[in-house]
Amino acid sequence: MNKNNSNTLKTTAAIAGAATVLALALAGCSNDESARYVDTKGRETVLNVDQINIQDLHIAAGNLLDALFKADVFKNAPRKPPVLAFSAIVNDTTEVFDVAILLQKIKDSVTRSGKAKISAVVGTQADALAQQSQGGTAAGVRKNNTPDFVLRGKITELAARAGRTRQKTYAFHFDVIDVADGTIAWTGDEEITKQGRKSSVGW
């Protein structure tokens, strides 16, 4: 093999090698469009450090309601089952997500448990009721359709970073207010911490 042929071969090999690497890289980047069902509460769902995932809401709602039912908050209610209203749940994180998903899960669980009825008074109306009760004015104007308890909540987050490791803690904080005397009948916290490591080099 003469020198010119050798150079041509090397150039061709280099280009072929580069094309192969490029093809492999593109294949690696392509999306897998084959959809399948996964268990919403299972381990196969997509998990992100920087976002609230659906399983986070399942875990938080489940654990908080377990704690609420164990505390037996409604045992001294003026009627059985008591009527529970839902005030706004404040999303105080850095991510917009539909708080209604969380709220609906809680409502479903409460209804199924039979421990309370859900009031049609919602959001700002329930907020106002909670504030009135804490100011001592709600009890005086109590009517049949007035809820006995108001549940309110706030979700906050705390981010941390050490080198390439990122961590986010989402804290779900709920209060149940007794409308009769404006006291906080129950308070519960649930924290979900997620951690991930970002690689510095990749394709």
Binding site: L22, A25, D50, Q51, K198, S199, S200, V201, G202, W203
Partner: peptide, 13 residues
């Protein structure tokens, strides 16, 4: 931004 943040800082390609 979030999609880029999930990928490595240095993309060899």
């Amino acid at each position: 931004v979030r999609a880029w943040d999930r990928r490595p800082d240095t993309l060899l390609s």
